[in-house]
Write a protein that binds this DNA or RNA. Structure first.
Lengths: 240, 240
DNA sequence: CGACACTTTGACTGTAGTCAATGTAAGTGG
DNA sequence: CCACTTACATTGACTACAGTCAAAGTGTCG
């Protein structure tokens, strides 16, 4: 369904930007060659659905941001995961994905067919182990977010999200030196997406961003580009 | 720290109630004997902390319910996971647990020391694989709960939780035949715990339970014992 | 320029939170 | 046996935070 709009190219591991950080890092030269044989590079434009319930896609994210969403029957939506390079995308060992994956920005993937990939998983225990560790980290993040959704105020939520993106998004265009407590980055999400991730409405998100700006906690270059003069202060606002 | 208050007995796999459903089901006779050598049965009374940040505990839950909680510095608390038999407890491959595990009821565990257990994981890939599948399911549940915390009303949250317990708690004293749409079970949680799991206050939980009772969606035998005359109706109320 | 997508701002509303009192049941000790 | 305590739950009155509905603002693209 998504195939006709997406470019497909054979994967080139030797030039891959996430070669050592992605799950591929668990493989030897020969094993990698094996994986490479079934890999295809794909470009997905902003807003396009990557994995509907029917066709599961497994892929490394090379560039861009992917949102995982769940929706109630009346349309209320919640983003349940945000994925950045070099994250692995896809619900393995399941008949159908329990959520939608959608490109939040233009996305570049290194995609694998379901069958071939799951076969390789059983063949190379190190690969499965790496993916297991990934999954454990994702579970920790999800539970961290449950605390935010269940207990934090709108103000704290917005601050927490900005902080999270400042930390995770360096690979998608963020400047952040851990010593100097300053950060500048570009939000990969619209206000509506921020709201869907934070369990708020877009109006509330907008108001909170305006407040943080007025107080000098953040500066806005434009709607997407954000400067955090002092990350410590943002951390205070975020709660924890 | 918890040791002095908890009974410890050698594990008896042949009499184990969760022998085939727990992760042990992935092991052969001989492998199981290996695991058995390092296993100790432990009883934990209601309210006692099982794993603080320092001492990680790995265990199968044999009986009772364990809650995983996260807390903000000012005391706001969120339950980020509820575990029933035969769930596996513990954050493997981590220096310290990112959350507290606490006995929501009296709990019986089959516990393993960290080092010995992680060694066995590397030795028996099937064991790790089983645990991996567990973790994937937990991640799905966590994300399901994110949708609840971010988007559902108080009424829908309470209904969803009752439904979840009706489904998951058969091993801790629930009667539920899938054909007949009737269910009776005992809540393993206080109102305060329900609130901490649902991201609400205990007053709001109490009011919603009262409303559901008044409408005949549920009946209360006592504060803990609940009858659902028609699970379909409860499902409607839960949203989705 | 006008159209469109996204964002901000304003006025008002409503759901769930807060604070406080009351209710209920089990357990203790005189 | 009954007062008393303790823990947990319910109910009520009031409040506040975020949601809703509506309008106006901003920037980009054709």
């Amino acid at each position: 369904m998504a195939g006709d709009m997406a470019f497909e190219l054979p994967a080139k591991c030797d030039r891959c930007v996430v070669r050592h950080k992605a799950i591929c890092g668990a493989l030897s030269e020969n094993e990698l060659k094996d994986l490479n044989r079934i890999a295809r590079q794909r470009r997905i434009p902003t807003g396009q659905v990557i994995a509907a319930d029917s066709d599961i896609v497994f892929a490394n994210i090379l560039d861009g941001v992917v949102k995982l969403t769940k929706t109630l029957s009346d349309g209320r939506q919640q983003i349940v995961g945000l994925q950045f390079p070099p994250d692995f995308l896809g619900r393995i060992y399941a008949k159908e994905s329990p959520y939608f994956a959608e490109a939040a920005t233009d996305v570049e993937l290194c995609a694998f067919p379901k069958d071939g990939f799951e076969r390789m998983l059983r063949q190379y225990p190190d690969l499965e182990h790496r993916l297991f560790e990934n999954t454990l980290d994702e579970l920790d993040s999800a539970r961290e977010w449950m605390l935010l959704l269940g207990r934090k105020t709108a103000r704290e939520r917005v601050a927490s999200l900005l902080l999270m993106i400042a930390r995770r998004a360096p690979d998608v265009g963020c400047t952040h030196t851990p010593e100097i407590r300053f950060s500048r980055f570009s939000l990969p999400l619209t206000r509506a997406d921020l709201a869907d991730y934070l369990g708020l409405t877009l109006e509330t998100v907008s108001r909170q961003i305006t407040n943080l700006k007025k107080e000098g906690v953040i500066e806005l270059v434009d709607n997407r580009e954000i400067i955090v003069p002092d990350v410590d202060i943002l951390e205070d606002v975020a709660g924890n």
